[in-house]
């Protein structure tokens, strides 16, 4: 006979957990393990960048000048702002502020959309100028003669920002799902694990960009 069985059973508590807090802690630990695999996946690409930079420093130096610092900078601010609104959304769920939860989720999705729009313009400029990965590289047809091995650099650029972009798109998807559930009033101070875990994912997408931006766009 446990103390739990005599108490009223909370709505969101699965039968194999003793308490809501234990349930939330288990879900969050699982999310952190998933984030660990995400970090390890991106670390392979970052290592590729560092190896290429180590062997061919001049290549990275020449080619990175062709990336738009402004577009990258704007996207950094957009993503940091979206992380901020996401943190506020989780807080609103914690204190049961339904109005702010929905509003901040909408802001977060909006900023994610802005990020993808800027990315779209950046990518289309690269496509137009023939600055493409590997054998598709043909920038010389468009009057750009980049010294070194720009086809390798742009391969790296598209892999790193592309994988990150896919994560942003997935983020928009899961945030929309959370928004729809929040609108039904499913989240409150006793149950907000999905909001929190999606928030953790979204912050990770921001973390990856925090390293991508200086390495690809800024560093000489």
């Amino acid at each position: 006979m446990s103390a739990i069985a005599t108490a009223e059973h909370p709505e969101h508590l699965a039968h194999h957990f003793d308490t809501l807090e234990q349930q939330a802690a288990a879900a969050k630990l699982g999310m952190w393990l998933f984030l660990a695999t995400e970090i390890l996946m991106f670390s392979g690409l970052f290592l590729g960048y560092f190896i290429i930079r180590m062997f061919y420093p001049e290549m990275v130096l020449e080619a990175h000048e062709y990336l738009s610092k402004t577009a990258g900078g704007v996207n950094t601010v957009v993503l940091i702002t979206s992380s901020f609104t996401m943190a506020l959304a989780v807080r609103a769920a914690q204190v049961g502020d339904q109005k702010n939860l929905i509003r901040n989720l909408i802001f977060t999705i909006g900023f994610a959309g802005v990020f993808m729009v800027v990315k779209y313009f950046e990518y289309s400029a690269k496509f137009e100028h023939g600055m493409l990965p590997g054998k598709f590289y043909h920038a010389w047809d468009h009057g750009y003669y980049i010294e070194g091995l720009p086809h390798i650099f742009f391969g790296l650029y598209f892999c790193m920002t592309g994988l990150h972009g896919i994560h942003v798109l997935v983020g928009i998807g899961v945030l929309t799902w959370i928004l729809l559930r929040a609108k039904k009033g499913e989240f409150g101070p006793s149950y907000y694990t999905p909001v929190e875990n999606v928030g953790l994912y979204w912050h990770l997408v921001d973390l990856v960009w925090i390293f991508l931006f200086p390495l690809l766009y800024l560093v000489r």
């Binding site: 103390a3 739990i4 108490a7 009223e8 909370p10 003793d18 308490t19 809501l20 807090e21 939330a24 901020f84 943190a87 506020l88 807080r91 914690q94 204190v95 101070p189 006793s190 149950y191 907000y192």
Partner: peptide, 14 residues
Amino acid sequence: VHEVHEHVSPISSY
């Protein structure tokens, strides 16, 4: 045991 006791940060810290 029926409450979630996570730390709630004030908005000002965010």
